[in-house]
Design a protein around this nucleic acid. Structure first.
Lengths: 254, 254
DNA sequence: GCACGTTAGCGTACGGCGTACGCTAATGGC
DNA sequence: GCCATTAGCGTACGCCGTACGCTAACGTGC
């Protein structure tokens, strides 16, 4: 089973773009654009109007060029999205800034920063990343997390699994929140209005007797804000990781 | 700030579809289709060809009807996706089947079942659910989880937050895996081939000295399978939840 | 049995999308 | 000054979701 050569070439091109070997043979007319400007503009468009507004035509118009000119810099929209995703993945933490903190504090910082990125650029979660390969900026985040977990007594696979766990949780939590926002924000409904519309259906469901545990919940059950819920989950998760680390260090209680 | 009436009506229609008050005033010609058949067919299309193949035209063709006929049953594609998502969310566990198990076993069962759903129907994770409201089947899953956490000493908001945490983790983990599969499967590359293509770029990055912690990882660091990684994360997460539950029950060690 | 209001099916059309193809013109190296 | 190279991009193709309005089937009231 050999791989189709052109597909391999596509991935190579993505990698070359991400890692940016900016070598160019200076023949022909001077480029009007740069890859950087394209990615920056595309991010601005997506930030402003959501992923629905992000089209090659729109980005080109914003840059004042013809649509097809973009394809001199980027193989296609998928690859552009991969570049955009890597670009905004900068959590703005350097190794020095975290040197004095323990693993838990560092993971907390990373989780918060990553969560914030998703809130600021929700289109990452809506994008269909069929061209995702590891870029330099996301790799930096990975590096930071892996470094924080050095000397914790974990094996290397475990350290990576912990990082994966954290990324998975943050992504999932942000995704839930984003879809909620997206659904309720359609047409500018507020939190209260949205639930007011849903209420009759849910009330009927509760009274049907098929959801006794849900029906038995008190009113304040839904009082957690998204932030509080995220913090709660993160705390439980780090507790669980801490248990493993402590057991490896030979202690019994945290 | 009043809500736009038509938007409220849209959500009402979604709810009516989800909760299926199948009342129909039998005037005019008899319907050739049912909502059920449409949803079933749409799921089959998405399962077979990914979300890219899922179009109203395609579903209609599969059913042997005109495209616009679908719109007599469903307001639009967004709502169809909401229906598909709820339909597929059945984890096949009844309250009786879990009655004798403790909270941890039940949450484990739910997590596994949910993860499996995402693997079987990856289009859920690719869909842009801008019309997501709570449907009867997803509510069943919620009910099950909330019931499992009764008598654990947690407050109601905490119980919901735990359920949220679990759902968030499973979704995030499945999403990471799905995007990896999606990228590498393009053109039928195997795991090994995919990494073989990425290797030079990553090797260069490692040798650059900018990622010392990553570079210091042993070779077997990447030996975890997706399953093992998921199990590891789930275990840590449940450990963390257990810690809180035990502290509430007044014990000290698990 | 018939007229009529209601409703299902759906043909047509519109405005979007991503991008393949190939032309024109600018450019630097020889 | 020639020429291979390459940036810009106009045009076109085949998709998409869905608005609109026509036709015909049907249940109901007479």
């Amino acid at each position: 089973m050999t791989a189709p050569q052109d597909e391999v070439e596509q991935i190579r091109r993505s990698l070359r773009l991400l890692w940016g070997s900016g070598d160019r043979r200076p023949r022909g007319p001077r480029p009007k654009l740069t890859l950087d400007r394209i990615v920056t503009t595309a991010i601005a468009v997506a930030d402003a109007g959501g992923i629905a507004e992000l089209s090659m035509r729109r980005v080109a118009a914003e840059l004042g060029v013809g649509t097809m000119s973009l394809y001199r810099y980027v193989p296609g929209k998928d690859e552009l999205l991969a570049l955009m995703t890597d670009r905004v993945s900068d959590i703005g933490l350097t190794p020095d800034q975290v040197a004095s903190r323990d693993w838990r504090q560092v993971l907390e910082l990373i989780a918060h920063a990553t969560y914030r990125i998703y809130l600021d650029h929700p289109w990452i979660l809506q994008a269909n990343l069929t061209r995702q390969v590891l870029g330099p900026i996301r790799l930096t985040r990975l590096e930071l997390a892996v470094a924080a977990l050095a000397d914790c007594g974990l094996t290397d696979p475990e350290r990576l699994a912990v990082v994966d766990l954290l990324e998975g949780y943050v992504t999932g939590a942000a995704r839930q929140r984003m879809f909620y926002d997206l659904t309720s924000a359609r047409g500018g409904l507020t939190h209260e209005e949205f639930w007011a519309v849903q209420y009759p259906a849910l009330a009927a469901a509760m009274e049907s007797g098929r959801y006794p545990a849900m029906a038995a919940l008190s009113e304040e059950a839904f009082s957690f804000t998204w932030e509080r819920s995220f913090e709660f989950g993160l705390a439980r998760l780090l507790d669980g990781i801490g248990l493993l680390i402590n057991s490896r260090r030979g202690r019994i209680s945290p």
